[in-house]
Design a protein around this nucleic acid. Structure first.
Lengths: 149, 149
DNA sequence: CGTATTATCTCGCCGAGCGAGATATTCGAC
DNA sequence: GTCGAATATCTCGCTCGGCGAGATAATACG
């Protein structure tokens, strides 16, 4: 075994959390007749909407690692289920702006809201230095795993 | 917007980390002609091997959320690529014990080792109280997202 | 204007994973 | 012991998400 310090327990915890979050999404998906990709798309769309950014078909596909054909069928599914609307771009009419339906947003919050609430609660029971440690660790892991094609 | 405290930044960081780790796995997969599920299986197998537990076909499939047919084709792929061997169970000859090839383990470490190294490094720069805060946050999130079918 | 570029869509196809059922092995009741 | 139920895995046929190639439509640029 390469390492058996007390740090490894936290490394495995992080992996366990990512696995559990993935399974949580999968449960949300199957309870609503959606596919994992649809859920990821919904999250991406809600995120963009919160940041007041327009999300186009192309940007969404890139964010999810889909090619244009896959993106089209993803949007067909989401639109067919009534979760999003396709709207032609105003100034650039080639683009398709994807608008999330309000009920889909509510659906998403009903499933992920409690989780976020729990996270906020955990963090509010920390002092500033502890929060900074958590932020630093997550930020470091994000940088380490991010990056290049 | 439901909440805009400083806690939300960390919540989004956690989500970003899970997304990045997922993309990291996907890169590993495509660089090695594997599918995301194959990588998840490999991690599960390495984990079991580290804990000195036998991993059977059925347990693996359950852990990954596959049914028996999907599990069989997963093992066919992994065995065809030389990453695992099927060995009939000793006392219960219905079972198929899955053994990971040593080279597949090395391959996995070459990709995920640096990430683990970075995590250990980050954690070693923390004092005990900060590490405890990180552990507590991750543990809490795991519990909140875990749970029941 | 005409040509290159960009954004999306259509078509045909591949293959991961599912459901149903077959096969082989073990356990339990009598 | 032996016969039927339970268990572990595999086979077959199929569905459908996602890919590659190329069509279509709108924009940018010389």
């Amino acid at each position: 075994m390469r390492n058996q310090g007390p740090e490894m327990e936290i490394v495995h915890l992080l992996r366990a959390v990512t696995v559990e979050l993935g399974l949580h999404s999968a449960r949300f998906a199957s309870h609503n007749g959606m596919h994992p990709t649809d859920v990821r798309a919904l999250i991406e769309l809600m995120d963009a909407s919160r940041a007041d950014e327009e999300m186009t078909a192309g940007r969404l596909g890139t964010a999810l690692g889909l090619n244009s054909a896959g993106t089209t069928s993803l949007l067909d599914r989401l639109e067919g289920a009534g979760h999003v609307r396709r709207v032609r771009g105003r100034q650039d009419r080639r683009k398709v702006v994807v608008e999330v339906d309000e009920r889909a947003v509510e659906l998403g919050w009903s499933f992920f809201g409690p989780l976020i609430g729990k996270a906020v609660e955990l963090l509010q029971n920390c002092d500033e230095r502890e929060r900074e440690a958590i932020r630093g660790f997550l930020e470091g892991m994000r940088e380490a795993s991010a990056g290049g094609e």
